[in-house]
């Protein structure tokens, strides 16, 4: 069905991240050499280029770095969601990731708003980390 939400095509870099999300925790790569987290998951650290990486369960807390309220959907799959909030979340641990802000009132979302992760199951394999304002 072309109107279903597009699901991620999981690869070797991203498999542990999606597996963790499916189990209800947020795991992102942590570099064993420079000590920085990164997102999205890669085979080498984008900060220091080390391949000494391990997935680390992070707090799931962060703040809205920026966002947009989509008044027109990104294709028919999202037509029923309009208006919806797509945001870049800056995690407490540093990296930024894209997600949705779950809210009844998109006008309340603002840059700097504190958020925490909430998991929303999309299929038997995929659970998305969405965020809620705290």
């Amino acid at each position: 069905m072309s109107t279903e939400q597009p699901l991620p095509v999981i690869d070797h870099d991203s498999a542990p991240y999606w597996q963790a999300a499916h189990e209800g925790h947020l795991d992102i790569p942590l570099c064993g050499d420079c000590g920085k987290h990164h997102f999205y998951p890669r085979a080498i650290c984008p900060h220091c280029h080390s391949d000494n990486l391990n997935f680390d369960t992070v707090s799931g807390r962060g703040e809205v770095h920026t966002f947009t309220v989509a008044r027109r959907p990104a294709g028919p799959a999202f037509a029923d969601d309009v208006p919806y909030v797509v945001a870049l979340i800056e995690l407490e641990e540093g990296p930024r990731m894209m997600s949705r802000i779950q809210t009844d009132d998109p006008e309340k979302v603002h840059i700097g708003a504190k958020v925490e992760v909430t998991f929303v199951k999309a299929s038997d394999e995929i659970t998305f980390p969405y965020f809620r304002m705290t």
Partner: peptide, 20 residues
């Protein structure tokens, strides 16, 4: 249209959220 980037590689972390 406003959608359409296949949800692979880096875009698997963008397209599913309905990013226009």
């Amino acid at each position: 249209n406003l959608g359409g980037r296949p949800s692979v590689l880096s875009m698997q972390h963008e397209t599913p959220y309905g990013m226009p």
